[in-house]
Design a protein around this nucleic acid. Sequence first.
DNA 1: GGTATCAATATGTCTATACATATTCCTGTG
DNA 2: CACAGGAATATGTATAGACATATTGATACC
Lengths: 247, 247
Amino acid sequence: MSLSVDRDKFQAADKPTLYKQIRLDIERRILTGEWPPGHRIPFEHQLMTRYGCSRMTVSKALSELAQADLIERRRRAGTFVRRPKFLSAVLTIPDIRAEITTLGRSYGYQLIQCSRRAANAADRARLGVQKAGKVIAISCRHSADGVPFAIEDRLIDLDAVPEAATADFAIEPPGTWLLHHVPWTEAEHSISAIVADSQTAAALDIASGAPCLVIDRHTWRSARTLTAVRLVYPGESHKLVARFKGG
Amino acid sequence: MSLSVDRDKFQAADKPTLYKQIRLDIERRILTGEWPPGHRIPFEHQLMTRYGCSRMTVSKALSELAQADLIERRRRAGTFVRRPKFLSAVLTIPDIRAEITTLGRSYGYQLIQCSRRAANAADRARLGVQKAGKVIAISCRHSADGVPFAIEDRLIDLDAVPEAATADFAIEPPGTWLLHHVPWTEAEHSISAIVADSQTAAALDIASGAPCLVIDRHTWRSARTLTAVRLVYPGESHKLVARFKGG
DNA sequence: GGTATCAATATGTCTATACATATTCCTGTG
DNA sequence: CACAGGAATATGTATAGACATATTGATACC
C-alpha cells in the first residue's frame, strides 16, 4: 500500500551542473521576456567565454532548449528565441466558444445546472483525489447557430481552484473561464463512443440510440487535479482530427 | 472541433546523421513494441560496438530519448523503456499486434479479404490521388484472447509502396508490415463515432446498434499518399488516450 | 542592375579521453 | 544473519580538437 508515491519532478532540484545552469539561465531570460521571440541569442563562442566553459557544453544546453522548441538554431545565422510555439497551442485544450465563433457561427450557451457541495465518494473517484473537499458541479450545453453542439458535465476541485467560487458560470462557460484564469500543466483526453440515451438525445436534439463521441478530460497542475470534464458530441456530425509528423 | 495536432516543423526530412539514426532505431523498437515498457536497453558500450561509434554519440541519442520521456536512465542500473507512454494512441500510429501482446494477451489475426486491382474512382477519392494506379485492398480483423478487438479496412497505394506486392498479408497484419517496412512522414487521424450496422456487429461480435469508435487514418511520405485505413473498435471496451503537457 | 561565385562563419556532428557520481553487488565483520 | 563498507560499473558531465555543412555577405563578372 503506497500512499501515492509521486516523485515530484518540479521539486526534484537537480544538481546544478554547468550546462543545466546555462540552460536555466537562458530559459529564464526567455520566459521573463528579457529575450523576446525573434531575439538572437549570443553566439556559442560568446557564451563559452561568458560561462567559462567549452563550446560542447553550451552546445548541449542550447540543444536541449532547441529540442524543447524554445529556441531555433540556424547555421551561420545564429540561435533565436522561437515565436510562440504552435505545438503547445496544438496540444492545448480547445475552447469551444472560440472554436465556434472563429468559424463565423453564432455561439450559444445554456447553463443547465450548477451546484456547490462537499465532494461525495463519486466526485472523489472522478477527480482522483483522496480526501473530501468542496467541488463545483456544472452541466451545460453549447450550441452553434442554434443547433446543439455539445453537452458538458464538469467537476471543479474548489480546493485546487478557489477562484472558481467567484466565477459566474451562468454567463461564461466553465471551460472558457478556466482556460483564461487557471494555468494547467498536464491534461489527459480519453476518447470513446457511446449511444445516446434518452436524456442525452433530448439535450443534443438527436435520435435516441444515435452515436456520440465522448471526451473525458482530466486536467492537472503539478500533479494536482483541477477539473474533470465529460464532453458529449453528436458522433456523426463531429470529428476529432489529429495531424502529426513522424517517421 | 479539432484536436488539430499539427507538428509541422518546416523541414521535410533531416539528414540521417549517425546519432539520429540510432535514436530513430531505438524509437522504432519502442513504438512497435519490440522493446516493451520496462525493457532494458543495451548498455552504451554495447551500442557503440553495435553502431560502431563512440560513447558520446550513443549518449547523445539516448539523452534526447530521455528528454522526450521515452526512456529512463539510471546510473549503474542501465537504461529502460518508460512505462507511461506519452501521447499514445491519438498521436502515434499504434501497432495493434504490439498493443495487444505487450498487455500479455494473445493476439489473433484473420484476413477477411485481400485483392489487388487498378484504382477505381472511390479508391482514388479515398486515397486523395488524382491518377489511377494499382492498389491493394485489405479487410481483416484483430482479436485479443479470442475476442474481436478491431476490424480494419485498408487501401495501399501500390505505386507509392511497390514492396507491398511481395508481402503476405495472410500472415502478417498490414499495419505491422507497413510500420516495419515503410517509413512515413505525416499522418492524420480522424476520429468519430458510429453505431454498428449488422455486418460490423457480426464481425465484432457485438449487438447491432452498439457504439463504435472509428479511426480514419491517412498516411503520407513526403506529401505522397501511402495508405488509408479505417479501424473500427467496439466503443465501450476501447478508449483512445492522449496525455499531454501544456501551460 | 542583376547574377554567379567564393570565402567567412556559426552551428552540427563526432572522437577520444577524463573524471564525477549514483547504485548495485559483494565481501568482511560483528 | 544483519549490516557496514568497499569495489565494480553504467551513466553524467566536461574538455579540446577536428571536420562537415548550411547560409550569409561580399566580390567579381556580365
